[in-house]
C-alpha cells in the first residue's frame, strides 16, 4: 500500500488522537472517581530534577493520605517563559489549589496573582515571587541560613582560612541569590577568609567547570568553593579535577542528589548542605488543604538543613539524600 503524504498525515493525526484518548483515559477516570475530593496541581521549577522529584514524592504521599488528587507538571528548563504557559493551562483546568515553585520573582507574579483571583489557592514551594501576599502560604528552606551553613562547612574543612569562591546558577533565582548572600555574609565577617565573589554557571556543569578552571588559573591558592546547586557542584568538581587540585580545594555543595552523594562518597566533594524537599512538599499539601477548607494557614514556613559529610552519609544523613523516583 502506497502512502500519500496527506493520508500519512491524517493517519498519524488519528493515531495521535486515539493514543491521546487512550492514555488520558486512565487519569481522567481517576479524576472523575475522585468526586468532591480536593484537586491539587503541583508545578515544578523544572521537570526531572531530583530536588523536585523528592518534593513530588512528599506531595504525592501527603495527597494520597488526605485523599486528594494530584497532577504534576513542569517545564523542561528552569525558565519563566516556559513555565508561564503551563501555569495558564493549569489555571484553566481549575484545580482547588496550586503548589508551585516559581521560576522568576517578577515574571510569575501576574499569572499567579490571576490564579489566586480566580479562586485557586496558591502555595509557593521553595522559590517565591516579589509580592507573595496573594499566596495562602509560602514554604521554603531558609536559604540565607543555608548559605551561612555552607560557609561554616568550608571553615571546618579549611580552618586556616584563605580564598573562597561561589559558583551559582543564574542571577534572579530567589533561592540561589539568598544562599549566595548568606555565604557572602559569613565569609566577609571572618577576616581569615577572602571572598572572591560569585560566578554564574547557568545551570550548565560544563560552564561551571570552565569558570572554576579560569578562577584557579587566576587565583591558584583558592581553598574552598561553594557550589550553590546540583549542576554547579558537578561542574566545579570537574574543574578542580582538571586542575589537579583535589587536595587543596574543598568543595561544599548545595543539595544532595544522587550525583552529589556519589561525589561525596568518592571524596570529590567534602560536604553537602541538604534541604528537605519532601518536608516542603508535605507541608505544602497540608497548607493547601487547610486553605481549601477555609481554615487559617501559616503565611510563611521555613524548613531546615542537614550538613552531610562522609562521616554521616551512611548514618543519619542518609535519609536526607534526594530521590530520583518515589
Amino acid at each position: 500500500m502506497k502512502l500519500t503524504p496527506k493520508a500519512t498525515l491524517l493517519a498519524a493525526a488519528l493515531l495521535a488522537a486515539t493514543s491521546l484518548t487512550a492514555c488520558a483515559g486512565g487519569s481522567a477516570s481517576a479524576g472523575s472517581s475522585a468526586g468532591d475530593q480536593p484537586k491539587l496541581t503541583f508545578i515544578q521549577g523544572v521537570a526531572g530534577d531530583e530536588f523536585y522529584v523528592s518534593m513530588q514524592c512528599g506531595i504525592d504521599a501527603a495527597a494520597k493520605a488526605a485523599g486528594a488528587t494530584i497532577n504534576t507538571q513542569g517545564p523542561a528548563k528552569f525558565d519563566p517563559t516556559l513555565q508561564k504557559p503551563i501555569v495558564d493551562s493549569v489555571v484553566a483546568s481549575q484545580p482547588d489549589a496550586i503548589l508551585i515553585a516559581p521560576t522568576d520573582v517578577a515574571a510569575m507574579q501576574a499569572p499567579l496573582k490571576a490564579a489566586a483571583a480566580a479562586g485557586i489557592k496558591v502555595i509557593l514551594v521553595d522559590t517565591t515571587v516579589q509580592d507573595p501576599s496573594f499566596a495562602a502560604s509560602a514554604i521554603a528552606s531558609d536559604n540565607k541560613g543555608g548559605g551561612l551553613e555552607a560557609f561554616k562547612a568550608i571553615k571546618n574543612l579549611s580552618p586556616n582560612g584563605g580564598k573562597v569562591l561561589v559558583i551559582s546558577t543564574d542571577p534572579g533565582v530567589s533561592t540561589a541569590d539568598a544562599r549566595v548572600a548568606g555565604f557572602e555574609e559569613g565569609a566577609k565577617a571572618d577576616s581569615t577568609f577572602q571572598y572572591l565573589g560569585v560566578q554564574y554557571s547557568h545551570n550548565d556543569p560544563a560552564e561551571a567547570a570552565r569558570l572554576v578552571s579560569a578562577a584557579l588559573a587566576k587565583d591558584p591558592d583558592i581553598v574552598g568553593v561553594f557550589a550553590a546547586n546540583t549542576f554547579a557542584a558537578e561542574g566545579t568538581a570537574t574543574g578542580i579535577r582538571q586542575a589537579g587540585k583535589q587536595n587543596q580545594v574543598k568543595i561544599v555543595g548545595f543539595d544532595a542528589g544522587p550525583a552529589q552523594v556519589k561525589q561525596l562518597k568518592e571524596g570529590i566533594v567534602q560536604a553537602l548542605i541538604a534541604q528537605e524537599p519532601a518536608s516542603i512538599g508535605t507541608q505544602g499539601v497540608e497548607q493547601a488543604l487547610k486553605a481549601i477548607k477555609g481554615e487559617p494557614t501559616e503565611k510563611e514556613i521555613q524548613t531546615g538543613f542537614k550538613q552531610i559529610t562522609a562521616d554521616n552519609i551512611s548514618g543519619d544523613g542518609a535519609k536526607y539524600v534526594y530521590k530520583s523516583s518515589c
Binding site: A76, P80, T81, A107, D170, G172
Partner: peptide, 17 residues
C-alpha cells in the same frame, strides 16, 4: 513584548525560543 508580559528581562530564559 516579552518585557511587557513578564515584567523582567528574563536573561536566563528564551534559551529554546
Amino acid at each position: 513584548l516579552s518585557l511587557s508580559q513578564y515584567g523582567t528581562t528574563a536573561i536566563a530564559g528564551q534559551s529554546a525560543t
